[in-house]
Design a protein around this nucleic acid. Structure first.
Lengths: 188, 188
DNA sequence: GTCTATAAGGCGATAGAC
DNA sequence: GTCTATCGCCTTATAGAC
């Protein structure tokens, strides 16, 4: 069974946005990928700004679901963090793309103002989740050299996003692994 | 005394590229900033691809000079790393821009192939410098919880680039500080 | 929902005058 | 070195037929 047109458009837009940034793709690209005319895209997303909002909304939910899945599946803090690092690694598709939030960040000024809030909310979701997991680590002892949850959380998010950039620049997931090896070594 | 036109163009292009990415500015933007017509820009940079190369070449040299300055000025590994973190922090202009290499990373597919090599060389310069400094730390003891220089170096570069992204997304240097506080705490 | 056709303007780049 | 003028193409977006 085939996804509906709107979903196909979101899929195509997310893939190309994460590869090329918000200013790096056009309706013509999506039209070619999905197989309709570019004017038809406006029926589903009136403006490119509206498309950006829809992309970020869907991405936020998708990652939220993934965080829940990890929490439900992995019992210890160390294992939860390992699973998150693996998720960020896989998200690069071997250095071909970035997290949507990272890909949008340089295009900030081209995006509608509403994206500011959406991007902050997305980052806050991850940071809160990480704070909880690092707080758990203080109890279960599965993270070595542990400092404070509120210090560890933003540092790990920055590390993961930076590791994605490294992989994208080198077009090689090995660059992600080199950047995260130190952190991985701290996790039991 | 006024800089020559070519330098003014490079300055304008670097500023806007670091704010908006490679696909986020046009010759028209530079023409307005510098005060000449956009056709005249082609005299200095025949193509936008050539401009990208010139930008990266100049940026690489500038950062190399800064690394030398830090090494000449700061005696210990801990102080050198602190100085580098401060340099990356200041480079964001309070969350308004990114390192050129970070800003170019999502625009990868729009850039000439030659930029792949230039961007890798830039990153390698930083990583080599960091490896040397972390190796020094093993002797002078100014970095706590130290592991291996070859593990620490790529992790710190990713952290710094990720911290810049955080600051750019939040438009606030405080996000950079939250991301780097843990690392700062390890430096004597 | 998707189409054709088109508007209105931006893009990088070139030709040739000065 | 910078200008005016222009080319060919791309962009987002709209109007109206089907």
């Amino acid at each position: 069974m085939q996804a509906d047109t709107k979903t196909q458009l979101l899929d195509a837009a997310e893939a190309v946005a994460r590869r090329r940034g918000f200013d790096g793709f056009s309706y013509a690209d999506l039209a070619t990928t999905v197989g309709i005319r570019k004017a038809s895209i406006h029926y589903h997303f009136a403006t490119k700004a509206a498309l950006a909002e829809a992309l970020m909304t869907r991405y936020h939910k998708m990652v939220g679901t993934e965080l829940d899945r990890i929490a439900g599946q992995e019992p210890t803090a160390g294992r939860r963090l390992r699973a998150l690092i693996t998720f960020y690694r896989d998200a690069t598709q071997n250095g071909q793309q970035l997290c949507l939030c990272v890909a949008f960040s340089p295009s900030r000024d081209s995006l509608p103002d509403s994206l500011d809030i959406q991007m902050s909310a997305y980052r806050q979701m991850i940071i809160s989740w990480l704070e909880n997991v690092f707080a758990q680590a203080a109890s279960d002892g599965t993270v070595t050299y542990l400092t404070y949850a509120t210090t560890e959380a933003p540092a790990l998010l920055a590390l993961l996003e930076g590791a994605q950039l490294a992989a994208r620049t080198e077009q090689d997931a090995a660059a992600f692994d080199r950047a995260t090896a130190l952190m991985m070594g701290r996790l039991l």
